[in-house]
Structure formats: structure tokens, C-alpha cells
Design a protein around this nucleic acid. Sequence first.
DNA 1: CCGCTCCTTCTACACCTGTAGAGGGCAGTA
DNA 2: TACTGCCCTCTACAGGTGTAGAAGGAGCGG
Lengths: 194, 194
Amino acid sequence: MTERMAALADAAIHVVATKGMRGLTHRAVDAEAGVPPGSTSAYFRTRKALVEGVVQRLADLDNAEVVDAGRNLPLDLDLLAEGAANVFDRWMSTARERTLARYACLLEATHHPELRGILAHGERPRAQMRELLAELGAEDPETQSRDLVAFLDGLVFDRLVGAGALGAPTPGTPESRAELTAAIRAALRGVLGK
Amino acid sequence: MTERMAALADAAIHVVATKGMRGLTHRAVDAEAGVPPGSTSAYFRTRKALVEGVVQRLADLDNAEVVDAGRNLPLDLDLLAEGAANVFDRWMSTARERTLARYACLLEATHHPELRGILAHGERPRAQMRELLAELGAEDPETQSRDLVAFLDGLVFDRLVGAGALGAPTPGTPESRAELTAAIRAALRGVLGK
DNA sequence: CCGCTCCTTCTACACCTGTAGAGGGCAGTA
DNA sequence: TACTGCCCTCTACAGGTGTAGAAGGAGCGG
């Protein structure tokens, strides 16, 4: 993917995050990216190509990410929980737009199976999680890591879309951070059967 | 909501589930509902009204639902897990379309706050869950039920969109059912700190 | 019977979107 | 300088979409 395409894809991600899949049009991306109208249409000739561009870019960004979960330390449950909380907390704040766009694309992939291959998101975090769980003595890291990632994903989704209970804490506040860590630790404990 | 509007809203839900928010147009709903073109446009004059109709209908359907979690039985963790598994399993199979539409609407609600009020989904299951957790001796049913629902939601989302690990079991198979129950039980154990 | 109201269907029209292709400038090369 | 290939910008146009309002018709009170 050329640099220019990446820039357009980034703008497209922003559009998806703020206006939803419905707002993802060639012209909207042009406007968002500040390029002359028609540019996006030239680089992503069809809308399908544009969506695939977004998905591809999301995958690239995810894979480029360095997830430092604190390896090589004496690993315990609390440390792991905190590392996971770091990652997922960032998904809710710094990478909020990307996360929203990812959910939108996942939903989109439901009726466009060809997107699913690219969108094997969580592949990397999941693999890492699997490894860490194995070190912690999990009996079935494969299944358990999957459940755990689903849990964290659910937590993020739940809080991002504001579907949580009334009076849900604002994302990014210390309270929610502490609460998040606690929830993750509890889930880890449960999944590990400890 | 009149009967006719409900029928249109149901068709609209189907459209959203199968074609996504982007496919939700007055004419598409007309076609899906088998009514003469223009009907949907007459009952939901603007697109915003149409979306709100969908959201309202989803909320109504959710609230009309009888969730029999086996009250008045000697309550234990396994029973609760199985009850929850029943509900959420159905969300993945029978009520699959509604669930997909709900996720789409939740995402939509991100940039349309007025939808959020109607979409207080899970309000009822969550309240019930809270009660049951309290009976089981949970120390903070409010927070814990929320986390638990987020977990279950994440699990459903994860499996519905096929974002799960490669080789994910097909939804609806006995394997996934058993696996689901096990995961829920584990999560319950973790959340309850038992 | 008339007239009224409500529900439903039909139609018009401006605007938005997807898509294709024509032009235009700017290297680098002979 | 002329040429060639490439990247970028601009424009056209068919079709889809949102929205409003007119037309039709069934039921009902007078």
C-alpha cells in the first residue's frame, strides 16, 4: 500500500469511526483527507475496494503495534491483568477511532466473507495471550485465550458504545481504569480456574 | 407503535441484519416487507425516524421477552450458568438477526446520542442477573453483573462476526453449546471470586 | 346521500453516490 | 527539445436515496 493510499485509508477510518459505515463515501474521505475531490475514487476505484482498504489498513496498524506485556518478568496474574488492561485501555482512548472502525468492519464482514481473512484481528494479541496463559499454567490456553479476548472485547465494546448500565463511568477516568483491571483480573482468575 | 409500523420495523431489522446499516433504505424495507413502494417512507418520514423505529422495535422485543432463568429453584452456579447459556445461545441462533441488528444500532448510537436512551438493552437481563448474583452472594452485584453481561456480549459478538480464532466451531452445534456453558461458568466463578 | 377523516398508495424531484474516463502537469530519457 | 510514462486532478453521468405532497379509497356520522 502506497503512502498516499495509507493516508486516504487513515482518513477513511476516521470517517467510519465518526459517521459509521454509511458515511463512508469516496467524497467524504476526500474531504476528511483534505485532498481534491475524486482522489479517493481514483485510488480505490469501487466502494468495495475502499472498504477493503480500510480493513487492510486496520490490520496493518494492528500488526505494526508493539504490545509490551512485560515479558521476561516473573509472570503472575496481577501483572498479566495489568498488561492487558494497558492494552485495552488504550483501545478505548488513544485508539478509540480505530477500535470503533474495527467493530464496524467486523459487522460489515458478516455479509462480506472476503473481508474476514484480512480482519483476523486479535490474532497477534490472542497468540500472545495464549502463550502467557500457558506460562501461567492454563489447562487449555487455546480456548481460554479466546474466551478471554472475547471478554475484553466485550468490555471494550460495552463501554465504547455506552451500552453499559446507567451511570457508567466515563472512559479514561482513573475509576474506570482501576475497575477495568479488577474486572480483567477476576476474569483471568475465573478462566484459569484459580 | 401501530401493528403496521411494527411489521415494517421488523422488516427493517431483517434488512439491517442482512445488509447492514448501509442497506437500510425506505425502499429496501418496502421490498423486504412486501408492501408497495413508498409505504415505509410514509410511516417513517425521514431516515432518522426509520432508524429510531428499528431501535424502538428492538427494545420492545427485548422487553417483551420472557427470560426464565429457573427462579425459585435451589440456585447454584451451574444452574445460573446454564440459564445464561440458554439465553445467549438463543441470541446467537434464533434471535441472530435481532442480535446483529442490535450491534449495528449500538454502533450507530455512538454518533446519535438520542438513540442511546431507547437502546438501554440488557437492562432487563442485567437487572435479573444482578438479582441472581446477589442471591449467590456476590459482593458487588452492580459492577459484577455489568462485567458479566459485557463478557457474554463479547462472547456473542465474537462468535457472530466470526472474529474468533481460526477453526471456530459453527454456532449452534452441540460443541459450541457445551463450550459456551463452560466459558460462562468459568467467568461466573471468576467474577464471584469463588 | 354527502362530507369528513384516516389510512394507504403513488409520483415527483432534488440531491447524493459510485464509477469511468478525459485531461494536465512533471519527471526522466534520448 | 520532443517523447513517454506516471501520478494526479477534474468532470460527466447513470442510478440510487430521502423527502414531500398529491391522489385514491374505505369507513362513519350526519
